[in-house]
């Protein structure tokens, strides 16, 4: 379709204006507010015990969630792409459930299940605390990030098909060898992209954590919860800006990784198509 220069310019202005107004301006504002008092003040705000604890808690959750999602996500993707079993359609729909369900609902349902009065509440009597402590936060984060690895890996598995794996089998490779030498190299960039998305979503998770995390500073407060608490409870808006900036820098690093991985993935799928 031919477009006149004028309509092209108009379209461009609308698109860029929209992005600037909704994304760039608010984020730039936070950067500006963070650094207007100088680097020293910023460093002071992000090295308080509460902030350091929040950063390390957020990273700990990521460190636990990512390996679990990688293993379970690849297994689920394999089941969906290769398996023939009744109820596959239901499994498909269930994987997408976290996209549809609000994180707050996830938090509430986890509390119902694991809270003191929930089905597994008896565990608290044995010293195993889930809600308001790390296990609950990990469970909530796994729930909301579950689809990413599955949804990135499954289409790749479908696309490469089973023939390479069968060829490896006829050449004597065991199931483990086939997975390591044939399947894993084929899905590696899809998997990497799924991991990057999981990291981004884990760092940013807020809704489910407000319910299941205690939000006790220095103990069960993630970076997102810290931003929220500083802003609303402590009336420390400047501290909230600083913590938000830390969160944003992490997100930007993840984004950068995303771009790199995505480019690799695109080259690889061209190779598959060739």
């Amino acid at each position: 379709m031919q477009q006149s220069t004028r309509s092209r310019l108009a379209l461009r202005t609308v698109a860029l204006g929209y992005l600037a107004l909704l994304l760039a301006v608010p984020l730039a504002m936070i950067f500006y507010r963070t650094f207007e008092r100088g680097l020293g003040a910023f460093v002071h705000q992000i090295t308080t015990p509460a902030c350091i604890s929040a950063i390390s808690l957020s990273l700990t959750i990521v460190a636990i969630v990512v390996p679990i999602n990688v293993v379970l996500g690849v297994v689920t993707a394999l089941a969906l792409a290769r398996g023939r079993f009744p109820g596959k359609g239901i499994l498909h729909a269930m994987v997408d459930l976290p996209f549809a369900v609000s994180p707050v609902v996830v938090g509430v349902s986890l509390t119902l299940l694991w809270g003191v009065h929930g089905w597994f509440g008896g565990l608290a009597g044995h010293g195993i605390h889930v809600i308001f402590s790390l296990p609950g936060m990990v469970l909530a984060t796994i729930f909301v990030t579950l689809p990413f690895v599955v949804r990135e890996v499954e289409p790749v598995l479908v696309e490469i098909g089973e023939e390479q794996e069968q060829a490896a089998a006829t050449l004597g490779a065991s199931r483990g060898q086939i997975f390591r030498r044939i399947t894993l190299p084929a899905i590696r960039w899809g998997l990497a992209y799924g991991v990057v998305l999981t990291v981004a979503r884990s760092l940013g998770e807020f809704g489910a954590l407000t319910v299941v995390a205690g939000g006790v500073a220095g103990q069960s407060q993630t970076l997102t919860l810290l931003v929220h608490a500083r802003y609303l409870d402590d009336r420390n808006t400047y501290g909230a800006y600083c913590a938000a900036t830390v969160l944003m820098v992490m997100a930007l690093l993840t984004l950068l990784l995303m771009v790199v991985v995505n480019r690799q993935r695109a080259t690889q799928s061209e190779e598959v198509a060739a």
Partner: peptide
């Protein structure tokens, strides 16, 4: 075994 679509390890 040789497959119609080669099944080359890409």
């Amino acid at each position: 075994f040789v497959f119609q679509h080669y099944a080359a390890f890409k």
